[in-house]
Design a protein around this nucleic acid. Structure first.
Length: 1039
RNA sequence: GGACGGUUAGUUCAGUUGGUUAGAACGCCACGUUGACAUCGUGGAGGUCGUUGGUUCGAGUCCAAUACCGUCCACCA
């Protein structure tokens, strides 16, 4: 038998977490295998970046998934949570390269591809262990036996099959594209990995001389640029072909907007309109002249390099801006690239891959961009070709990974054609096969896919899935044909496993190609199987494998089916796919969710999941996203250490509201004195902080010097976790009470006839809460679930039911039934709370099993050995009794009123007070039934109840709905306090009555409002008047 | 420039299809350790629901405008 001494009054989460998690794993409860007799429920984890540490966002994301998995597992589903990590191409390689540079002063080229990849693998092994360990400490019930990695053999096979399939369908092609070039990492990065920063820059106006200007024509055209050094790659200057029409259209648009504009927008628009009109009168003539010059084939002299370039007409330049002329640098600007393609301009790449200038830059070759800018500007100025310079705020694209400026750069890249794939993914959502919740996020998904932009999938990295394509240039068309024939006749050629594409050179003129030493085209051969010896044969013909690897999202896109064994038709794939729910955050709806849908449809022919739940983001107290680089991030492990995994989980669930992101003010915790120090934008980036209360310093994540690092580390925490920690402790202590009072428990049937009002009430509440929690979990209304369970546990169960059971548990005749009910309600509560707080509930479950292994209503049976696999409670709707709940509410009101009098009259806690209740006989019955609880919970003894009781004098009068309680204050009365209380109540009632009277005397209200609403107000008015009368007579008695 | 979200107590957030004088938690104030729990209990103070207008018998809730905060997308020679 347990005694108080045996069960500590604090839940020791530290040891319980480790022990229980270990036991669950040993029992194999996380492992799911296909079983046709049961329904599957599957979630695939959004694989965290293998080199990252878990942050609070992960904690939120994974808590929600675990709640769903545990909920469904308890509901009897065959629940599989598929875990794994992502190889995260650039991020991972960058980290290892950085370490290499810092520790060994080497670059990746010093090591070579094979060695670098080997190093990254060993780095990965170390960090994968760490991140999976973090998930385990959170309590994640993932099927660890199935853990996958986006770069492991199984995923690699899926990637190759997918690539091959798309290649064969001609949905993969290579083309020249302007890419975002990271000169530091020397790789192309996707648009999604580019951030723009606003910096102070300049706007240079350059003068390009016109060659042989005709009379009336200007000597120079003026172009403006924020990047003067790129002029070395200019191949044209463009003007609008019809400035008059263009200006007219702009003016028209402005007028349209002005018509719909609000007052505050008006003045700005009017100013713009005026500027356009002004411009037309001053500039139109010269703009038209320029357009004419362009039509006449005028040429310009590109300064410094003295290259002749054409003045061309194109619709890109806007006549309303600048000089109306735009320099065109097709190889280094996205818009110019489009112009270059339209006008068939040469594309001159002036950059080396490291960001220095190449031979095309003539005398500037070898310079860095920064140096080149200075020199170009200086030289232009010396030649009198710099018109003017103005200061301007400019948007600088910056690589998310290396934080260095991005250069647009013309390079060979591989693309996936999106037209049909994107359409299929759009259909899946618009016809409801995949639902995205909350629904508003569907729009960003559909809008993004709707653009159907081809997906650039190659990355100039070594870490990742190397593109399984072998290529060789063919100089002429005949050579290409021969080569093709040779490939086809190679031993082992099999169209099911090998596919060939011919990529023609953009330059179609054979003479020009010969002159420029360009090939006719390239033969690309894709090989499906990793082990295929065909590659060796190809290489003997001179083919070389493409060095690039695939975008990380390419393998992530296959995650729901590659983890289940595709392309094999495994039992797992057949059983668990399509998965049920994907839980993720909104920033990867496009990058990841959309691509999983289209790849799932392409590869398996089925959607990857039925539902996508998008959860909120956690912001700090300033409303900023948490991140390591800002220093405002919370490490979930710090939270687990201090508050326990259950507390962290409960907090996360409690924060997950449907409508918005959530703020969480954060503090440092002083490791010396445990004081909490509010984080400010200032102190959050310091390497060391001095505690204002103990004056001792501690280190932060920024500590880099040995002295700072030697200081104790002050974790970043939030007091918001205390609520949940206290809750888990409350639960623990309620259980502790139960264990003590269940001594001598014997199972037996419950006699419903003998149920007291509080029994019927708690069963009614239990049925309601069970039904509601179940419904809300299915709707992903997590915060609501947390709130329902918190209130039910703390208020209904602890503050009322357990308090009321105390009496019956001390009486031998009532004890057995009370014990059975206590065991049962606790049992149900543990089940309901388990998905959110698995550790404390499992720990209590085991204790409960020790003392009351057989329990239940109405007929007891042996409880499951482990809570994690216990059945989810069924809402017994026949227990729902609204009339009992409203009766109980009366009792609660009476209790509250009695306690209020005690407080207001300052009556010592243990001093008993006496009271009578004036009320209808049926209310009297209820009060008599519950009077022992008014006695135990408010030390208030009922003397009499009914319509004709005698009011004691002096008395405190509590005018409540349906009853008037008179507390005997003989020897106790504080007249002033009582008078004050009554007067306040008087004011309230008078206000209420006049408001209600006003409403009821309003003819419009009485004639239009629904009857039940009118009745409600009438009822209220009657009640308020009764209460007012009681208050008034009590006031009179006080005089 | 486009799309979306938010604005309710000192703080963080709830608030169902419009219907009593708007709730919770934390914090604050007062009182209290008799055997589950001071990580607790009891009571209390604290809000003209961003602003303006409209619809309605009735608006935190619906509509329009407006201000501010935030997120995503696009674009800026």
């Amino acid at each position: 038998m347990s005694t108080i001494a045996e069960i500590p009054n604090r839940f020791d989460f530290e040891t319980a977490q480790t022990r229980i998690y270990q036991q669950w794993r040993e029992k194999g409860y996380f492992h799911a295998v296909p079983d046709p007799k049961r329904k599957p429920y599957t979630i695939v984890i959004p694989p965290p970046n293998v080199t990252g540490a878990l942050h609070l966002g992960h904690a939120l994301n994974n808590t929600l998934q675990d709640v769903l998995i545990r909920f469904k597992r308890m509901q009897g589903y065959n629940a599989l949570w598929m875990p794994g990590t992502d190889h995260a191409g650039i991020a991972t390689q960058a980290v290892v390269e950085k370490r290499l540079r810092e520790n060994e002063n080497k670059t990746r080229h010093d090591l070579g591809r094979e060695e670098l990849v080997r190093r990254i693998w060993s780095w990965k092994d170390e960090y994968e262990k760490r991140i999976l360990g973090q998930l385990q400490r959170l309590g994640a019930s993932c099927d660890w036996e199935r853990t996958r990695f986006t770069l492991d053999d199984q995923c690699a096979r899926a990637v190759r099959y997918t690539f091959f399939d798309l290649f064969q369908k001609n949905l993969i092609y290579r083309g020249k594209r302007l890419v975002n070039w990271d000169t530091f990492l020397q790789t192309a990065v996707s648009d999604d990995e580019v951030n723009t920063e606003t910096i102070k820059g300049q706007f240079w106006h350059l003068k390009y001389p016109v060659i042989d200007p005709q009379p009336g024509e200007p000597e120079f055209v003026i172009v403006a640029t924020t990047r003067p050094e790129t002029m070395l790659g200019d191949t044209a200057v463009a003007v609008h072909p019809d400035p008059a029409t263009a200006l007219h259209k702009v003016e028209q648009d402005l007028q349209d907007r002005l018509a719909k504009a609000t007052a505050s927008e008006r003045s700005a628009l009017e100013a713009q309109l005026e500027a356009i009109r002004q411009r037309r009168s001053t500039h139109l003539e010269s703009l038209q002249l320029l357009a004419l010059m362009a039509r006449n084939g005028r040429r310009l002299l590109l300064p410094l390099l003295n290259r002749e370039i054409p003045l061309i007409a194109d619709t890109w330049p806007k006549p309303e801006l600048g000089s109306g002329c735009v320099k065109i640098t097709p190889a280094h600007d996205p818009n110019d690239y489009e112009v270059g393609k339209r006008c068939k301009l040469p594309m001159i790449n002036i950059l080396n891959s490291d960001g220095t200038l190449n031979a095309e830059a003539g005398p500037y070759a070898g310079f860095s961009l920064k140096q080149a800018r200075q020199k170009v500007v200086a030289d232009l100025e010396a030649q009198g070709l710099l018109d003017r310079v103005e200061d301007k705020e400019i948007e600088l694209p910056v690589s998310d990974r290396s934080k260095t400026p991005i250069e647009p750069f013309l390079a060979d890249q591989w693309f996936v054609k999106m037209e049909t794939l994107a359409q299929s993914a759009m259909n899946a959502v618009s016809d409801g096969r995949v639902s995205i919740l909350p629904k508003r996020y569907e729009r960003s998904y559909l809008d993004w896919l709707g653009e159907k932009r081809d997906w650039p999938v190659s990355r100039q990295l070594w870490w990742g899935h190397q593109i399984p394509v072998w290529s060789l240039a063919a100089l002429t068309d005949t050579e290409a044909e021969e080569l093709l024939a040779n490939v086809r006749s190679l031993p082992g050629f099999d169209e099911a496993k090998v596919a060939v594409q011919l990529e023609l050179n953009d330059e179609t003129d054979p003479e020009k190609r010969t002159r420029l030493n360009l090939p006719y085209g390239h033969l690309h051969v894709a090989i499906r199987d990793e082990a295929d010896k065909f590659a060796a044969s190809l290489e003997s013909l001179g083919f070389e494998r493409q060095p690039d690897v695939l975008d990380t999202w390419f393998s992530s896109a296959l995650w729901p089916h590659s983890t289940l064994g595709w392309p094999e038709k495994t039992a797992e794939l057949n059983y668990f796919y399509p998965t049920n729910t994907l839980v993720t955050s909104r920033d990867i709806i496009t990058l990841w969710v959309a691509r999983m849908v289209l790849m799932g449809l392409n590869n398996v022919g089925q959607i990857p999941f039925d539902q996508v739940f998008i959860h909120p983001k956690i912001l700090d107290g300033f409303g900023e996203t948490m991140s390591k680089s800002k220093g405002n991030g919370i490490d979930p492990l710090d939270v687990i250490d201090k508050f326990g995994a259950d507390a962290l989980r409960f907090s996360m669930v409690h924060l997950t509201t449907e409508t918005q992101d959530v703020r969480m003010p954060v503090q440092f915790e002083c490791p010396n004195c445990a004081a909490s120090i509010e984080q400010t934008k200032k102190n959050r980036i310091l390497p060391r902080v001095e505690c204002p209360s103990c004056k001792k310093p501690f280190s932060t994540q920024w500590a880099s010097t040995p002295e700072d690092q030697a200081l104790p580390r002050g974790p970043v925490l939030s007091e918001r976790f205390e609520v949940a920690r206290n809750f888990s402790n409350k639960l623990w202590n309620a259980a502790r009470f139960a264990m003590i009072r269940l001594e001598g428990y014997e199972p037996g049937p419950i006699d419903f006839e003998q149920l007291t009002i509080e029994d019927r009430w708690i069963l009614s509440r239990l049925a309601t809460v069970t039904a509601e929690v179940t419904k809300r979990l299915d709707e992903f209304a997590f915060a609501e679930v947390a709130r329902l369970l918190y209130d039910f546990s703390w208020q209904d169960f602890c503050s009322f039911y357990v308090e009321m059971l105390k009496e019956r548990l001390s009486d031998e005749t009532t004890r057995p039934q009370a014990q059975r009910l206590l065991a049962f309600v606790l049992d149900q509560l543990l089940r309901l709370l388990h998905p959110i707080m698995p550790f404390v509930t499992e720990e209590i479950w085991q204790l409960l099993r020790g003392i009351a292994p057989v329990r239940g209503l109405p007929h007891p049976q042996a409880a499951e050995e482990w809570l994690i696999v216990a059945a989810w409670p069924k809402a017994e709707m026949q227990w729902q009794r609204p009339e009992i709940e409203s009766q109980f509410a009366l009792f609660q009101t009476a209790l509250g009123a009695l306690r209020e009098i005690r407080a207001k009259q300052n009556i010592p806690p243990r001093r008993e007070i006496q009271f009578v209740v004036r009320c209808q006989p049926h209310t009297a019955l209820l009060i008599e039934q519950t009077s022992i609880y008014l006695e135990s919970m408010a030390a208030a003894k009922l003397i009499a109840a009914g319509p004709n009781v005698t009011t004691p004098k002096p008395a405190a009068t509590l005018a409540l709905p349906e009853m008037e309680i008179c507390v005997d204050l003989t020897g106790l009365i504080d007249k002033a306090a009582e008078k004050q209380r009554l007067e306040k109540e008087h004011v309230r009632l008078v206000g209420l009555i006049s408001g209600t009277e006003g409403k009821l005397s309003n003819q419009a209200f009485v004639s239009k409002a629904p009857l039940d609403v009118i009745d409600k107000f009438r009822d209220q008015l009657r009640q308020s008047r009764e209460q007012l009368a009681a208050v008034e007579s009590a006031l009179a008695d006080l005089q």
